[in-house]
Design a protein around this nucleic acid. Structure first.
Lengths: 191, 191, 191, 191
DNA sequence: AATGAATGAGCTTTCATTCAT
DNA sequence: GATGAATGAAAGCTCATTCAT
């Protein structure tokens, strides 16, 4: 083989795309991305046939990153609360540590350019969370609310928490813990 | 003035813009908007000097709409819970009843094209909510969490609730009530 | 109406396109055409939505030109020989007088970018020639050759004649007359 | 030389080029050619420095092929009619048997990318035809027409004949014979 | 010599904005 | 003020050619 397609270059493009998209939205020019990645305009298209393909690849990549950040060292045997807390912390910490990915993801998620395959692939790694919620529901830990509202609440409260931390990083620990308490108390039965 | 700029036309443009932006994102062409508004391409620019000006005007308009939807018949004298419940219900109902505005707003809020003035103007009408939260804090109703997390939780939980209702409108009442309970329980002190 | 689309400009584009295509083939850039037509690059596309649309319009225009050149003052009542001679002369003279159209047409005819509609529209004006050949066949003027070979011979001999005239314009009259004699003698019965 | 440039590969490229150009015109990408030839994109350029060089080589190759098809077993001693008939038949049969070469050649001949050298080289093998025509002229076989019109008529009528055969292969023999009769009768003196 | 990734000029087309009518 | 044609600067993408391997 001649020069093989380099994984480095592919990664550089994805990283540059995340940065540019996070900053300027998906309308940003591919030329901005290639130049940020330090490659020629045409080279981008040997790694991703179209801009949409790049978009979808980036989405899946970020989702995988996030999922592995959330799921590494997952305390599968511990209590529901511990497991949810683990997920919450990892999620929030990931968002705080990776604002670029987070913003890029936000843009990607509201766009209409993700294929169904990407959406499926992107949500697959979160199956564990579903199981967890099912589990808890079986244990009758939750208040009498539709199950899907539980997961949605976790996601949305975590996002709100990340925003606050981004605005005021010094308060990170307090926001993160308080956020989880709101979620947990809101969602579980009173005792 | 011979022919004064017509408020009708201005409104038509804003309505068309909301629809088009909701559907296609902010990248949509101004020509799509003018044609949806039933006016000539050039006419749009006598009402809004640039596309960004239109964007910002639309943002402020939607925010005002939302704010007045939330604040009409506000039970200023009633309990904190009643008042928050009022806001919650109005907010969620508005989002459900005005999906176009809601989606347009979502696009606008993640864009980098809103001026600081717009952001300020857009949040001003929500001052009442702040006051309300202050009030409640003074009454020591809330659990020991940073105050700004309260408002953020309300917003984000309400958004999540709207999404669920949009996906499954028959469950509207259940989602709305359950959502509020999660918020209220999560945020107030245990008794 | 504001500035109405001008027929002048449309014609200028078609003329420029003929010139450029004749010279460089259909691969020539649209920007070369717009600049030759004295308009901005974008303006071309308000008159022709795509390059292919321009191509097809040009084809039909040239075919119409040619057809009206051939058919004006057509001696409908005269002998078959006179009528064929008329067509021959008009065809050859048109080609000699309009080399740009002729070359552009040559490029267009071998391209795979003409729609079926264009091909039909382009051949329609030549129905008269068909009729003429049918007529002559009915009169048993032609030698025992497939009818379609008659028309094909006329076309191809005329083209060859035009090429020779283009290479040596002073011989125009001789080539034209000699060409017709070859055609007529080749195609009709010996007496 | 370690690995000499292979004639096989050169031929494969020319064959692939003929096929691709016949089908899509000269605008076709060199990458399509290299892939059809089963070689790498870059390899094409070790055999032909530029696309234009390939174009010109292909033109000459096809012309040589055609010429040798026409001239093999040439009945040098037979009558002018027999010799012209031989050429005619070989020419037409070649075109029918090698549509790819024929179409590629058609594209090449109208392009402006052939060098003068190529044009000269391409016409050289047809010197024999010239001689033949000279010969016949000396014998006063031809009608009183410019000599160059004779060769041009042969070429153009043969092309027209090939087109008809391509459209209706079952009629091949009839078209070929009738075509020749038109040519011969058209061009020679009446008796 | 062979490979195919890398390059960047060039292509067609879109679009916010201007301006003649 | 209203209109929509005119503008030209991008945009995404292609492709002949180069060059590291």
């Amino acid at each position: 083989m001649a020069r093989p397609k380099s994984d480095d270059k592919r990664s550089a493009i994805l990283a540059a795309a995340a940065e540019i998209f996070a900053e300027r939205g998906l309308g940003a020019a591919t030329s901005a991305i290639s130049s940020a990645a330090g490659i020629a305009e045409g080279t981008l298209f040997t790694y991703f046939k179209t801009k949409d393909e790049l978009l979808n690849a980036l989405y899946r990549e970020i989702k995988m990153e996030l999922s592995s950040a959330m799921m590494s060292n997952f305390p599968r045997k511990k209590s529901v609360r511990t497991r949810l807390h683990h997920i919450w912390n990892r999620f929030v910490n990931w968002g705080v540590a990776n604002p670029v990915s987070r913003f890029a993801l936000a843009h990607l998620e509201v766009s209409d350019r993700l294929t169904d395959e990407s959406k499926v692939a992107g949500s697959a790694p979160f199956a564990e969370v579903e199981t967890l919620v099912d589990d808890a529901a079986a244990q009758r830990l939750f208040r009498n609310v539709p199950e899907e509202l539980i997961a949605a609440s976790l996601r949305s409260l975590a996002s709100a928490t990340m925003d606050l931390i981004a605005a005021n990083p010094r308060m990170a620990d307090q926001y993160r813990e308080a956020g989880f308490e709101i979620f947990w108390t809101g969602v579980t039965k009173k005792r």
